[in-house]
């Protein structure tokens, strides 16, 4: 497990950022500049980190943990748009698109999360001076675009049943789940409501694709779930 102890551990920060896809393009000196001017923030599970509509005052980079990025409909229903993990930049799209940009969605910590905040001016300077950094940033943005297109396609073309099957497979394939997930949270991940998730889980159990053992949802039939996920 990674050790990140205090803000005065500049070497630790340089090491962690240097290993991430976007920031690995920076030189040790440039990473050092980030370490000199940045501030570490820590959040416990469930804590809000940023709010839709708030101005982006600094560049926020995830050092460790998991942030659920979401928007709410007018009736209060949540849709999770993405998860940001180690090395990812918060609200990178509005940040690069607009001057005085605002967060286009809100974010909350799913697990204990550490982020580092660096001055906007420094980020602009690094973009202006380091072409390799620009290229990795572009690749990162392309990845985000692909993720958003895939979410849009999934929400508009696939059924909730198919999205739930895909979600269950992805979740069970993730190593070491330290926190459980409620049916309400699953609904927010796949763009539906809790009642539908509960009904579909019952359907899947009746079909013999999974079994419920108290808090453990045990998947039994990968083939059937994968076929459903492709529908």
């Amino acid at each position: 497990m990674k050790q990140w102890t205090a803000m005065d551990d500049k070497q630790g920060l340089i090491r962690i950022l240097g290993k991430t896809a976007v920031f690995s393009a920076l030189s040790v000196q440039e990473l050092g500049l980030i370490a000199e001017t940045s501030v570490l923030r820590t959040y416990s599970p469930g804590a809000p980190i940023f709010f839709q509509g708030d101005e982006i005052a600094s560049i926020l980079v995830v050092l460790e943990g998991d942030i659920a990025v979401f928007q709410c409909s007018s009736d209060g229903r949540e849709q999770i748009l993405s998860h940001l993990r180690e090395g990812e930049i918060i609200s990178v799209v509005p940040l690069l698109l607009y001057k005085n940009a605002c967060h286009a969605a809100s974010g909350r910590a799913v697990r204990a999360t550490k982020i580092v905040s660096l001055p906007l001016r420094l980020f602009d300077e690094l973009c202006a001076k380091n072409a390799a950094f620009d290229r990795t940033l572009l690749r990162y943005l392309a990845g985000k675009l692909e993720q958003i297109s895939s979410l849009a396609g999934s929400l508009s073309l696939r059924t909730a049943r198919s999205r739930l099957a895909a979600f269950l497979i992805k979740r069970a394939d993730e190593p070491g789940q330290s926190v459980g997930i409620t049916q309400e949270e699953i609904a927010a991940e796949i763009g539906t409501v809790r009642e539908i998730v509960a009904r579909l889980l019952r359907d899947f159990a009746q079909a013999g694709w999974l079994k419920r053992e108290r808090q453990n949802l045990v998947l039994l039939n990968r083939e059937a779930l994968e076929e459903e996920a492709r529908r």
Partner: peptide
């Protein structure tokens, strides 16, 4: 399911058999 204040959570872990 019935709590109007979202005060009750029943988290599930999802694993393969």
């Amino acid at each position: 399911a019935v709590c109007p204040e979202n005060a009750i959570h029943c988290p599930l872990t999802i694993t393969w058999n």
